[in-house]
Amino acid sequence: MDDFSISFAIQAYFFTFVISLGMAVLIKLMLWVIRRLTPKTPQPASDTAGE
């Protein structure tokens, strides 16, 4: 095995690792932002309330 191909594969894996875990962080961040910005819908009042 030549050293260049090994270092090339390691670099490719490193980039994949960073991007993939970055995607996971992005997902968490995106869900947090969406849930913060989405107004909470009030629970619909029961039709039989007050009866």
Binding site: M1, D2, S5, I6, F8, A9, A12
Partner: peptide
């Protein structure tokens, strides 16, 4: 996917 690259070269 990673390990097969240097193995293929070898």
């Amino acid at each position: 996917t990673i390990a097969a690259l240097p193995i293929g070269r070898a």
